[in-house]
Simulated scan of single mutants.
Amino acid sequence: MTGMACRISELVLDAADPDRLAAFWCDVLDYVELERTDDGSIEIGPAAGFGSPLPTLVLNPNSAPRNGQLRLHIDVNATDRDQDAELERLLALGAVHADVGQTGSEDWHVLADPEGNEFCLLRTRLAPV
């Protein structure tokens, strides 16, 4: 067999405040709200919706405290500006610098979203999808 068997369609994050996290990630990724469910979950994604080349994010309400560093994190790349300008934009949106043991010589920035979920801003500028 050759070819692709799967691709990532959704990433699911637990959130103490799904509305706040949805607003943050919509601003970061230029996503829109796609769906709200009765249990309080919010799905956000590209305007094209679920199944487009970009994965959606599902933010599930969960008030349990997080223990330790996430085992999976999101990496983002700027599409319309350099890394320094994108870093300024992300910080203005509510991201904060996070220390996960980096040395300071990395060419990426480790940040955390408003609920403390770590993510990295990489250096390479990518073309928009």
Rank of each mutant, 00 (worst) to 15 (best):
residue 92 A to R: 15
residue 76 V to G: 08
residue 33 E to Q: 09
residue 86 E to H: 10
residue 99 D to C: 00
residue 68 G to K: 05
residue 41 S to K: 12
residue 75 D to R: 08
residue 87 L to R: 06
residue 61 P to C: 02
residue 97 H to T: 03
residue 73 H to V: 06
residue 71 R to Q: 03
residue 41 S to L: 01
residue 76 V to F: 08
residue 50 F to S: 14
residue 41 S to Y: 07
residue 94 G to H: 03
residue 90 L to W: 13
residue 73 H to D: 00
residue 33 E to Y: 01
residue 36 R to G: 00
residue 75 D to G: 10
residue 36 R to I: 00
residue 44 I to R: 09
residue 68 G to V: 01
residue 88 E to Q: 13
residue 74 I to H: 14
residue 35 E to Q: 15
residue 83 Q to E: 05
residue 82 D to A: 06
residue 80 D to L: 05
residue 87 L to P: 10
residue 54 L to A: 12
residue 99 D to T: 00
residue 79 T to L: 04
residue 41 S to V: 04
residue 95 A to W: 15
residue 83 Q to L: 00
residue 88 E to R: 10
residue 57 L to Q: 04
residue 81 R to T: 13
residue 93 L to M: 09
residue 68 G to I: 06
residue 36 R to W: 01
residue 94 G to A: 01
residue 75 D to H: 13
residue 49 G to H: 14
residue 35 E to W: 11
residue 36 R to K: 01
residue 42 I to W: 07
residue 62 N to H: 02
residue 99 D to A: 06
residue 55 P to Q: 13
residue 37 T to P: 00
residue 46 P to Q: 15
residue 58 V to G: 06
residue 72 L to N: 13
residue 62 N to V: 01
residue 74 I to M: 14
residue 75 D to S: 12
residue 60 N to L: 02
residue 34 L to I: 11
residue 94 G to M: 04
residue 45 G to Y: 15
residue 46 P to Y: 02
residue 84 D to E: 12
residue 85 A to Q: 08
residue 58 V to D: 04
residue 80 D to H: 07
residue 68 G to E: 04
residue 85 A to L: 08
residue 61 P to N: 06
residue 97 H to V: 05
residue 65 P to M: 09
residue 58 V to S: 03
residue 57 L to Y: 09
residue 36 R to M: 00
residue 90 L to R: 13
residue 40 G to R: 05
residue 55 P to Y: 15
residue 77 N to H: 15
residue 73 H to S: 07
residue 79 T to S: 03
residue 54 L to K: 15
residue 67 N to S: 10
residue 43 E to H: 01
residue 51 G to Y: 13
residue 61 P to W: 11
residue 34 L to C: 08
residue 67 N to H: 12
residue 81 R to D: 00
residue 63 S to K: 05
residue 78 A to S: 11
residue 88 E to I: 06
residue 46 P to R: 09
residue 46 P to C: 12
residue 82 D to Y: 11
residue 47 A to G: 00
residue 86 E to W: 08
residue 64 A to C: 02
residue 59 L to H: 10
residue 58 V to T: 04
residue 59 L to K: 05
residue 35 E to Y: 12
residue 81 R to V: 02
residue 58 V to I: 04
residue 73 H to W: 09
